[in-house]
Design a protein around this nucleic acid. Structure first.
Ligand SMILES: [Mn+2]
Ligand SMILES: [Mn+2]
Ligand SMILES: [Zn+2]
Ligand SMILES: [Zn+2]
Lengths: 141, 141
DNA sequence: CGCGTATTTTAGAATGATTCTAAATAGAAT
DNA sequence: ATTCTATTTAGAATCATTCTAAAATACGCG
């Protein structure tokens, strides 16, 4: 299923804790960005993040958004992904290995947990697989 | 297997024929580009194409390479694909649905025919799948 | 062959996402 | 308060790609 996200909502205090644990100072900018990426957003682009954060924090710089997502990525709190259908990187709070469904009508991405897909690979012996990336495109009827 | 490509080598005359059939004038630039994309190359980027063609056809413009790959794409002679690990579009002479293996050591892409992968999707009833894109990353030991 | 017209090629400018730079600001430590 | 480091910021730079508008070329026809 592309079902309800398994991501618990984090309180501001919990976010603060995650940042500190990652060695990042919990600045107002970062807390706001995390409130969006970790709690509200669904696979947002930097543009999405900037737009949302701008409402709560007018005038935040684009560079800060980039800096922050990079830091969050390094800290392992988000995953950066790029798909064929867009030239923008999207950030994924789901850092577990999983796949994606692109709803071609709405343009929205939805997680597909690994256990919802069974893959049987018939590859040469000498290949060691490190990672599998899957994007399913389709529509809901 | 990521085995030998199922792409027959085309003679210059055959390439000429393909272009005409697609309503494209078989100019020297296009013939040279096709000689590379359709016969020699393995998932080349525009940069790759430009570099190879430049040797046979010094001074060809980058715009022409872009124009030509777009025309070939429209004609259905190649497929444009973008993967996560590079910010460049690559062109694929294999226009059948298929998947890809990225050799992380060499950075090279290899086709995986659809019949070498069995996928069982456990998705909601209301989802109609139009396309599945798979990239397998790994190494050869 | 020689013209007329549509297609193609081309250089260079524009675009857009992202990265870089270097200076200003803020936080933490002493 | 002073110092040191982390963060934020505006703006420039980068890079793949797209666009523009003019020059060159190909092709059909007389
Ligand atoms: Mn979006
Ligand atoms: Mn390449
Ligand atoms: Zn996801
Ligand atoms: Zn391929």
């Amino acid at each position: 299923m592309t079902q309800q996200s398994p991501h618990p909502t984090l309180t501001p205090e919990e976010i603060r804790g995650e940042l500190k644990q990652a060695g990042m100072r919990p600045t107002a900018q970062r807390l706001t960005i995390c409130q969006y990426i970790l709690n509200q957003a669904n696979h947002p682009s930097v543009e999405d993040i900037k737009a949302w954060v701008d409402a709560k924090f007018p005038g935040i710089s684009l560079a800060t958004v980039y800096n922050t997502v990079h830091a969050l990525e390094t800290a392992g709190l988000v995953q950066a992904i790029r798909f064929d259908h867009s030239d923008k990187v999207i950030y994924d709070r789901n850092t577990e290995p999983h796949f994606h469904f692109l709803d071609e009508d709405s343009g929205t991405l939805h997680d597909i947990q690994s256990d919802q897909v069974q893959i049987n690979l018939n590859l040469p012996e000498d290949i060691r697989v490190n990672d599998i990336s899957i994007l399913i495109r389709g529509k809901r009827q």
